[in-house]
C-alpha cells in the first residue's frame, strides 16, 4: 500500500513520526475534553470529542500500517505537557487549534514520504486537520502544513 518505490525504512520512519504526533493529539484532546463543560459548552465538547475520536482512529490505523511493515509501532509517552491555561472555552479552542496545526505539519510530511493509497489518506487527513484547525479558531493558511513554502 505504502512505499511503492520508496525505501520501506523511510516510509516506516515517517509513519513512526506521525504516530508519535497522533499519540500526543489523542492525549491532549482527552485533556481538553476533561476541561470542557458538557452543560455550559456542549457544542465545544462535541467538537473536542469528534476530534479525539478522529485522532484515535488515525493513531490505530498508523499502528496497523507499521505492523504490516513489520515494524514495532512507537508507543505513547507516559504523559504529555498539559496545555495551559484551560480555564475558559477560548483556552480550550486555542489549544485544540494548536494541536490540529501541529498535525497538519506531520501529515504533510507523511504526504511527501509515502505514495499511492497511504499518500491519498495522508492528504485527506491533512485537509481534515486544516478544516478542524479553523473551526477551533486558527487563522486560515494558503498551504496548511507547508507554511515554510510561503513568503520565502
Amino acid at each position: 500500500m505504502s512505499g511503492t518505490g520508496l525505501a520501506s525504512e523511510q516510509v516506516a520512519d515517517a509513519l513512526q513520526r506521525v504516530l508519535a504526533v497522533e499519540h500526543a493529539a489523542v492525549w491532549t484532546f482527552g485533556s481538553l475534553g476533561a476541561a470542557t463543560s458538557a452543560s455550559a459548552t456542549p457544542l465545544l465538547l462535541a467538537r473536542v470529542e469528534r476530534a479525539w475520536t478522529a485522532h484515535r482512529g488515525r493513531r490505530d490505523r498508523l499502528h496497523a500500517l507499521l505492523l504490516d511493515l513489520g515494524q514495532q509501532p512507537v508507543g505513547s509517552q507516559a504523559a504529555y505537557a498539559v496545555p495551559s491555561p484551560l480555564g475558559r472555552p477560548v483556552d480550550v479552542e486555542r489549544a485544540a487549534a494548536r494541536v490540529e496545526l501541529a498535525g497538519t505539519q506531520a501529515w504533510a510530511f507523511l504526504v511527501a514520504s509515502t505514495t499511492s493509497g497511504t499518500r491519498r489518506w495522508a492528504a485527506g487527513v491533512l485537509g481534515e486537520l486544516a478544516v478542524s484547525a479553523v473551526a477551533f479558531g486558527a487563522e486560515p493558511e494558503p498551504l496548511p502544513g507547508a507554511g515554510d513554502l510561503v513568503g520565502t
Binding site: V111, V134, E141, A146
Partner: peptide, 13 residues
Amino acid sequence: ARALAASAAGVAQ
C-alpha cells in the same frame, strides 16, 4: 505532492 496537498487543504479551509 506535499505542496499540492497543502494547497488543497488551504482551499478546504
